[in-house]
Design a binder for these strands. Structure first.
Lengths: 186, 186
DNA sequence: CAATAAAAGGCGGTATACTGATGATTATTG
DNA sequence: CAATAATCATCAGTATACCGCCTTTTATTG
C-alpha cells in the first residue's frame, strides 16, 4: 500500500493520520491469525445490531424495542407472570425484566400487581391497550424478521435457523439469562 | 392443561399464578404464527449473549469486554486512528467509541492525542501496556470464539460463518454503525 | 476572502444487559 | 416453633449502543 502523501487532499488525510505510526509486527501477526471478521462473536454482534436497525425501520412510530415486543409476546400467552418466569422465558436478566416492565407500565401497556398467594411476587399482564398494540405491531415485526434473512435462499435460511437453535441449545447454561426449559423442541 | 391446584406445593405456585388469567385467544393465534424461537432476531440476540458469557468466562481476570478487545485489535493494526475511523472499522457508533476509549485510557491501555494536521481529530493508539494485554489475552479470546461453535461440525461451522458474512454484507447499510468498506472479502 | 457547508468530537438522554448487595417474604429444618 | 435457608424483587453500579443537538475546526463556494 503506497501512501500518496497529501497531494490527494481531503480524502487521504484520515488515512495518512492512521499511518503515522507503524503497527507492531508481532502483534500484527497475532491478530491476523484471527481477524475480526473471522470471530463468530463479532459477526453475531454486528448482525444483532442490523436486526435492531431493521426492527426500528419497520416498527417506526410504535416506539417499541425488540426486547419490549418479546416481553409483550410472552405476556400475550402467559398473563400474570412473575418477573423471574418472564426472564427465563425471554432469556434476559431478571433485573432487566423489571426495567423493561417499568417502561411498559409507564406507557399503560402493562399492569403489575402483587401476588396475594406469594407476596414476594409481582405479576404482570397486558392492559387492553397492550393487547391492541401487540396485534397492531405484529405485521411490522414480522417484516423486520423476514428482511433480515431476505438475501438467503430457502435452504440456506432453514440451515441458518437450525444452526442458531442448535447453538443456543448447546449453550443454554451460560449466564443469568438461561432459559428455564428448552422452548426449541416444538 | 389441567391446573392441579396447590396440592403439589411449591413447584406449581408459579405456574398457578401464571394461569390466573386466560390468554386472549386471538392474540394467542397471532403470536403462534411467529413464536419467539422462530424469530431470527431473537435467536441472534440470545446467541450474542451466550458469546458474552463465554468471553467473560475465558477472559476472566483481564477485565476486558468483547467490544473493548475488538477496539484494541483494530488499534493493533492501525495506530493513531481517529474515532470515526475506529467506529467504521468496528461497526459501532462513534459516541460509543469515545466511551470505550475513555475507559481504556483510564486504565492506561490507550493513549489519545489531538491531531496536529486536523485539530478536530483525536487520535488513539495502544500504550505499551495495551500491546502487552492484546498479546496476553489473545489465546483466551480465541478459546471463547471456538467454544461458541464447538458443537458444530466442520462443514456446518463453515456454512454458518459464510451465512453470517453474507447477511452482514447484504445489510451493511443499516444504522450509524455501518462499516466503511467491506472487510469481508479477504 | 467572507459566508456557508461539512466534518469531528462532546454532551445529554434513553434503552438494554449484567453483577453484587440488600430487604421482605416464604420454606425448611433442627 | 424458632432459627436458618431459599426465593423474589429492588437498588446501585458498570458497560454497551444509539440518537439528536451543539461547538470547534476545516473545506467549499460565491
Amino acid at each position: 500500500m503506497a501512501k500518496s502523501a497529501k497531494t490527494e487532499g481531503t480524502q487521504n488525510k484520515r488515512a495518512a493520520a492512521a499511518a503515522l505510526r507503524e503497527p507492531n509486527p508481532e502483534l500484527q501477526q497475532l491478530i491476523e491469525r484471527l481477524p475480526l471478521w473471522k470471530r463468530p462473536g463479532y459477526l453475531i454482534r454486528r448482525l444483532h445490531q442490523v436486526h435492531y436497525a431493521l426492527f426500528f425501520e419497520e416498527c417506526e412510530g410504535f416506539g417499541i424495542t425488540p426486547v419490549q415486543y418479546g416481553l409483550l409476546t410472552i405476556l400475550s400467552g402467559n398473563p400474570d407472570s412473575d418477573q423471574i418466569s418472564l426472564a427465563q422465558a425471554l432469556g434476559i436478566d431478571r433485573t432487566n425484566v423489571a426495567d423493561v416492565l417499568t417502561r411498559l407500565a409507564q406507557r399503560g401497556l402493562v399492569e403489575r400487581t402483587r401476588s396475594i398467594e406469594d407476596k414476594r411476587m409481582v405479576l404482570a399482564r397486558l392492559s387492553p391497550e397492550g393487547e391492541k398494540l401487540v396485534a397492531a405491531m405484529h405485521p411490522a415485526m414480522s417484516r423486520a424478521q423476514e428482511r433480515l434473512l431476505d438475501t438467503l435462499g430457502e435452504r440456506e435460511r432453514a440451515a441458518f435457523l437450525a444452526t442458531l437453535i442448535k447453538l443456543l441449545e448447546a449453550n443454554n447454561k451460560y449466564g443469568r439469562a438461561a432459559l428455564a426449559t428448552s422452548k426449541f423442541g416444538d
